[in-house]
Design a protein around this nucleic acid. Structure first.
Lengths: 191, 191
DNA sequence: TCCCGGGAGATTGTCAACCATCGCTGAATT
DNA sequence: AATTCAGCGATGGTTGACAATCTCCCGGGA
């Protein structure tokens, strides 16, 4: 959906409303949503502009926060997951495998998102889940822009390992798999 | 401003609009803002209710995220602070001292907020600053509800130490002072 | 020439009234 | 007793207008 707009580009409510054939009300709400997700900043009486993400903030802020959120939510979810929940995750892993074979980046990303959000939902932690909504889109935007073509096969494999770790039901094992998974997603700043 | 509403209490747009003598538009926007700040959750076609914060999420999610945000922003701000900026912080520390002497909790909290947000603003990191807006109100709400009467004198002293550490311009010194400051604010879960 | 203040136009913020849509509830029906 | 459905309350969206504010440009004065 995004990636088509340049940093700093201005977003004018009336124009957007007309283009989407709706009224200014929903457009204003959508802009607030985008602001919550960090893809846009707005200033009173001056409107909204598209916001970029710096390498530095991704490395030193967004990824560490993501780790905090996922560490907690995986630990919590682990206590509540049933067999059928693991099956749900397995389904997404399978889809990632299919996406990798078809070289379908979009399908892979979507399955990836569903995997993590399913765990989030099972954690039952409202603040954690809600903050995920503020963090994830920023990281996603970063990858869409600057990310090299991800290795789809690796993504599928790592999620398979993550799932296997969860099935051991041992928090320490899951934490280790999780930390590797998230750390590895991001190439070091020098790359 | 908050603390007067019970968890789960329902917020009805029309009623609020009438009470505040405004229209539903701004009320909707305000509710979205509160949702961003985690003080409220809303469900489609079912409205918004007040949301509490659990001990666990404060300890394992909110405080660690706060640490991540502040570590980064203090480090960044350090590179940009001038003498007059330190003077600004000194002013807030002085106010905290006054508040402690007058036993004025509100004034102390406000100076505390201004101190940290001033550093945030000097860091010039947009995502970090914006995420602060999503995290800080939750922690604040937690303290307003469950926090024992804070030791105002200690707050003033710690900020003085934090400022002194910044004036050394040595990142490692600042990081240590910061971590102590934030960790100490929160009594261990057992307490 | 350069600087400053005053419109003019564009855009956001707010208002009010209205209808569509959804979720819940309680009463009627099977 | 369980189910269904109409009514009601509240939210989501629409429209059109107006107020508040910003930006930009232009002309007058130093």
């Amino acid at each position: 959906m995004l990636g088509r707009l340049a940093d700093g580009e201005r977003l004018i409510e009336d124009q957007i409303a007309r283009r989407l054939e709706t009224s200014r009300g929903p457009v204003r709400e959508a802009l607030r949503q985008l602001e919550h997700e960090g893809l846009v900043v707005s200033y009173p009486y001056r409107g909204a502009v598209v916001l970029g993400v710096s390498d530095e903030e991704v490395q030193h802020v967004l990824i560490p926060i993501r780790l905090t959120l996922e560490r907690f939510s995986f630990r919590k979810a682990l206590e509540r997951m049933r067999e059928e929940d693991f099956a749900e995750l397995a389904k997404e892993v399978w889809r990632m495998g299919e996406a990798a074979r078809a070289d379908d980046l979009m399908a892979s990303v979507e399955a990836d998102i569903r995997f993590h959000e399913f765990v989030l939902s099972r954690s039952g932690q409202q603040h954690t889940t809600q903050l995920w909504g503020a963090i994830a889109p920023r990281i996603r935007a970063y990858f869409f822009r600057y990310g090299r073509q991800s290795d789809l096969a690796r993504i599928a494999r790592e999620h398979g390992e993550l799932l296997a770790a969860m099935q051991t039901r041992k928090p320490a094992v899951v934490m280790r798999a999780l930390e590797e998974h998230i750390a590895v997603q991001v190439p070091p700043p020098s790359a």
